[in-house]
């Protein structure tokens, strides 16, 4: 594997690791074509943790799969846009090139580590296999590297545990094994799709710590897909909020939580239960449920559920507007002074 693009600090540190431009991803269904992702753009810088948040069906996982060229076949396809990995478009790349990049330069971890690990192969072997697939390397060296990776991700007695099978590990430990496999070749980007959703909270805290630790250690960028605004708050540098296939807001984490500019964003924030706040009457809630992507609302997709809806929201699609440094929101009124949640929309 000679032509794998390695990180060159001089050339690369200024430009993003990955730049997604106007991505459109579609699925053929019995009932018609569904645009799961509709014109989404974002980029992720070196060593940055970029979170994509939204509810089920908003297209966040489709974004992750599109970046890797892993949309379920034959139903899914990328219908437009570019995924630029260090300037190279992965959408138009050959399958061979994609395979090369995948696992080597861009790696992914999933919600359910048990189904992603082969139950009949020792975990050490599985990690060593990653090396052998992408590098010419002595089996013995690969095994040693695998053991080292296991200890990096915090598996005690790594030397012994490398000989165990996946079912002998607990859920949290399996997720650590997945992370070890993903970071084996020092990828530039790690995609984590709901990495802690299936885990208990005390284990979740451990796994997030491991993720941030390997990011620091290997200068990796992380694309974190999650529905949990709490997880985002503790880990992400920048956040993109998706709704019904569209990007509705993007901002540095602090700004997104402090001054949300899209009513959906503050609706989500308001309706999230918090462990640090005493109960104050009922929770603010977003009425209704997300729209059908077969027949999405004609203009703003959030209009049918929006507490601030105006006539224009039902006729004109709101483009993304810049509201602050690094913060954009797809709302007609985002730039209005004083635009933001009313006191009753945010629990005290």
């Amino acid at each position: 594997m000679t032509d794998v693009t390695y990180f060159d600090p001089e050339r690369d540190s200024a430009r993003p690791v990955i730049a997604v431009e106007d991505l459109v991803a579609e699925f053929r269904t019995e009932a018609g074509i569904v645009r799961a992702v509709d014109g989404v753009s974002f980029d992720i810088a070196q060593k940055e943790v970029f979170a994509v948040v939204g509810e089920s069906g908003c297209g966040k996982s489709t974004v992750a799969l599109s970046v890797l060229g892993l949309l379920p076949q034959p139903a899914g396809r990328i219908a437009g846009g570019k995924v630029l990995f260090r300037g190279e478009d992965l959408v138009s790349a050959s399958p061979a090139r994609l395979r090369q990049v995948r696992g080597d330069r861009i790696a992914m971890i999933f919600q359910d580590p048990l189904s992603a690990l082969n139950p009949t192969i020792r975990v050490g072997e599985q990690i060593a296999e990653v090396f052998r697939a992408h590098r010419e390397i002595e089996p013995k060296v690969a095994w040693e590297q695998a053991v080292e990776l296991l200890s990096i991700v915090g598996i005690p007695r790594a030397l012994a545990r490398a000989k165990d099978y996946p079912h002998q590990f607990s859920g949290g430990m399996r997720q650590r094994v997945m992370i070890a496999m993903a970071i084996a070749l020092r990828p530039a980007l790690l995609i984590a799709d709901e990495p802690t959703t299936a885990l208990d909270v005390t284990i979740q805290a451990q796994i997030l710590e491991v993720l941030l630790d390997v990011r620091e250690r290997f200068d990796m960028a992380i694309l974190l897909i999650t529905h949990d605004l709490g997880v985002v708050a503790g880990t992400a540098d920048r956040v993109m909020v998706m709704y019904a296939g569209k990007k509705v807001e993007e901002a540095p984490a602090l700004d997104l939580y402090r001054t949300p500019k899209h009513p959906y964003t503050w609706g989500l924030l308001g309706s999230t239960t918090r462990v640090d706040r005493p109960r104050t009457g009922s929770l603010p809630q977003i009425p209704g449920s997300p729209p059908s992507l077969l027949v999405p609302p004609p203009a703003c997709r959030f209009a049918p559920r929006c507490p601030r809806v105006q006539p224009i929201c039902r006729t004109d699609y709101p483009e993304l507007r810049k509201v602050d440094v690094g913060q954009v929101a797809a709302c007609h009124f985002a730039q209005d002074p004083g635009w933001g949640p009313a006191p009753e929309e945010v629990p005290a």
């Binding site: 805290a205 605004l229 709490g230 997880v231 708050a233």
Partner: peptide, 8 residues
């Protein structure tokens, strides 16, 4: 261990 949705 429960994350709080407030980065600060």
């Amino acid at each position: 261990a429960i994350p709080i949705p407030d980065p600060e």
